[in-house]
């Protein structure tokens, strides 16, 4: 039971990063800056928390709703700002996406490091974290059911809602259709009157904002308010999860829990020596590779990335 709850808890970090990246990739942009964006989003959320808590006359009396809302907004804003730099370079200036993404990651991690270690007041983080992990009020009364499904912090439910919402938007709405068209074949979309640039910008920035909230979740919920640079590794796994779930937001909910389980498996195997634990920690990476191989060997038509992924679009080019 503890294992499953732990797996869900860490899995949500992957889920945020994964659905953010799915949205970006659907517009044809492979954003390798997600690790940096998640880190910077986490830093942004922490700035929000410290601003809110610091601004109160009595920090013990914080409002649950405003604290969470404000920190989500700052996290999303910081992350979207990096997403905007990325999209300016790759959409408007048509720069190489891989190189730009790597630079964004370095930038995001560096800037977060500076923010967190030099300016942000971390006094109230532990206190604020209690608001984030606060479970639904009636969870305890419902036994194992309550513990499994209702005992999580609010950001967990937000992530799952976002994933389902995104699946619906992508597959059932006109906007989603247009976005997929942009990612599959921008020239055709352009000819059909879709504003390719706007779709690319909005998808990338929104995706980044979502991923940034994932960073906030990792720090405030999973780590209970202590700052750590592990978010970068989370980000890379989130990108791998996109392939694992074949660009489907609804599948990514299950995929992220599975990844979460693999990620924490090492801590739950009884009697493993410290060196065996080090090997067990490699599981998620090995599984990702196995999945990459299997999907490429199967090579089925439905499970492919957007056709124009990674390519810049210039209208006058044949």
């Amino acid at each position: 039971m503890v294992f499953i709850i732990g797996a869900i808890s860490i899995g949500i970090t992957f889920l945020y990063g994964c659905i953010g990246e799915i949205l970006t990739e659907k517009s044809g942009h492979l954003n390798l800056g997600i690790p940096g964006i998640m880190t910077f989003g986490a830093a942004g959320g922490c700035v929000g928390v410290s601003l809110y808590m610091g601004g109160l006359s009595d920090p013990n009396n914080a409002s649950w709703f405003f604290l969470i809302l404000f920190s989500i907004l700052t996290a999303a804003l910081f992350a979207a700002a990096l997403g905007a730099i990325y999209s300016f370079l790759t959409v408007s200036l048509r720069a190489n996406q891989n190189i730009t993404g790597l630079a964004i990651t370095t930038f995001g991690v560096g800037l977060s490091m500076f923010l967190m270690e030099s300016t942000v007041d971390k006094t109230y983080f532990a206190k604020a974290s209690t608001y984030f992990v606060k479970s639904l009020p009636f969870a305890e009364k419902l036994g194992w059911f309550g513990e499994l499904f209702l005992s999580h912090g609010v950001l967990v439910y937000l992530a799952i809602t976002l994933a389902l919402l995104m699946a619906w938007v992508l597959n059932k709405t006109r906007v989603g259709l247009h976005l997929r068209a942009v990612g599959e074949n921008p020239a055709t979309a352009d000819a059909a009157g879709i504003n390719v640039t706007v779709y690319k910008y909005v998808a990338t920035c929104t995706g980044s904002a979502i991923a940034g909230v994932g960073g906030l979740f990792y720090v405030m919920d999973y780590l209970n308010g202590s700052w750590e640079y592990g978010i970068e590794a989370m980000g890379w796994l989130a990108i791998a999860l996109v392939i694992f779930t074949m660009w489907r937001p609804n599948l990514s909910i299950l995929g992220s829990f599975l990844f979460g389980g693999l990620y924490i498996a090492a801590e739950f195997i009884v009697g493993a020596s410290s060196s065996q634990k080090e090997l067990l920690k490699l599981l998620p990476y090995v599984v990702t590779i196995v999945v990459l191989i299997i999907t490429s060997v199967l090579d089925s038509k439905e499970n492919q990335p957007p056709a124009a992924l990674g390519l810049s679009y210039f209208r006058e080019e044949r």
Partner: peptide, 18 residues
């Protein structure tokens, strides 16, 4: 810490990429 080397080199990369 290594924050500033990271920040400055990535700003320079942004410009050169751009």
């Amino acid at each position: 810490n290594t924050a500033f080397p990271d920040i400055v080199t990535s700003i320079i990369f942004f410009f050169i990429i751009g």
